[in-house]
Design a protein around this nucleic acid. Structure first.
Lengths: 154, 154
DNA sequence: CGGCATCCTCTAGGATACTG
DNA sequence: CAGTATCCTAGAGGATGCCG
């Protein structure tokens, strides 16, 4: 057999949870999208947080202001270039402040703005979901990879 | 002057909100990261949702099961290839089901699983944040781009 | 209708080296 | 210390064409 069944048709609105439909409306996804980069608030945020390092940097700055190299060590495998690029873009969006102390050698401190700190909510929601469901996803993934022959053999 | 001040040092824990530090612990970001793709739950989810189309597809499927081409039309500017790729990977993670009806011509229906539907929470949180702060970000961005000369001229 | 397979492009991002 | 500049590669993703 080639078809995989389950759920049939619907999206269960779940018990006390928010409906995906409601979220779609809030997200402004009501018609076809011309360009994935425009007109969708959720995509805006994901463009902002979806890159490899932004969230890791934000989480580190959540503990308080840090200087460039300390931040680099704390984050880990990030390259100097990417830390610079990431911080610039976070600064541009008003999520992070950059303060230069004209000492010698120079000291530069980065810190979350209130706007940046307010991301704790959304990021926390993602973290909770991830922690709750990661085992499930891992097993689903294994199952899928195991039954791969279903797709090619009749 | 070259330094931009604000906030000084700390991350305000805000009124009744969640602290970024707590989120960091939940996210498992307690030591330096060797590879951004491993050991951080939040990064796992963002790798999953951060691409250009996944969330848009998920939001569409939130209204109920859809066939391939209907979904393609609904989403908009997505290419056939990327819709296929996105759906495969969502299916692999157990977020979406794929049901083949052996009619002629063939019909294939996609639907959210319960696991996929449970993303309404986190995605909703992102959407709310985005809608609330998008104007602020836009203006911050404009302000930054305007004062750009500060960085190069002494 | 619902796909693969192929080709081609463009960007994210690492490595390295130099500076105020 | 905290960058900037340059070079280079891998992978994301569009366009196109063929197939059951």
């Amino acid at each position: 057999m080639n078809a995989r069944h389950s759920e049939g048709t619907a999206t269960p609105p779940a018990s006390g949870e928010r409906s995906m439909r409601e979220v779609r409306i809030v997200a402004g996804v009501t018609g076809p999208i011309a360009d994935p980069r425009v007109l969708c608030p959720v995509r805006d945020v994901l463009d902002r947080l979806g890159d490899a390092w932004s969230v890791l940097v934000i989480l580190r700055l959540g503990d308080g202001a840090m200087r460039f190299n300390a931040l680099k060590r704390a984050v880990g495998a990030i390259s100097q270039r990417m830390l610079t690029v990431t911080l610039r873009s976070l600064e541009r969006d008003g999520l992070v402040t950059r303060t230069v102390f004209p000492t010698n050698p120079p000291q530069v401190e980065y810190a979350l703005t209130e706007l940046g700190a307010s991301l704790a909510g959304p990021i926390g929601a993602l973290a909770d979901w991830a922690v709750t469901h990661r085992d499930r996803i891992t097993s689903e993934r294994r199952r899928y990879d195991a039954g791969e022959t279903d797709r090619s053999s009749p």
